[in-house]
């Protein structure tokens, strides 16, 4: 029944999720948006998802991650997990 081509939680998927979150917060202005995105990810993402996205970014990948969620991830990384 299953199709073996399916992959798991790709970092691209997490990037898309972060960009979607940013699309919502963007109209609130840069500072509020960054805080909102960071708070949303902190409240709803598992630690493993955040680690996976961080690892992806650390490898120099993640060019598709918009500037706002990137700033939000940076801000989150300054806090304990």
């Amino acid at each position: 029944m299953s199709d073996a081509s399916h992959s798991g939680e790709t970092a691209e998927h997490l990037v898309a999720m972060a960009n979607d979150i940013a699309d919502y917060f963007r109209p609130q202005g840069r500072e509020e948006a960054i805080a909102g995105i960071a708070n949303h990810i902190k409240r709803y993402w598992t630690v493993r998802m955040r680690q996976k996205l961080n690892a992806y970014l650390a490898r120099g990948q993640g060019g598709d991650l918009d500037e706002l969620p990137r700033a939000a991830v940076d801000r989150l990384n300054q806090q304990p997990l």
Partner: peptide, 10 residues
């Protein structure tokens, strides 16, 4: 996320 984690073997 459970589905994704399952496909990742976690």
């Amino acid at each position: 996320n459970m589905f994704e984690a399952a496909l990742d073997g976690e």
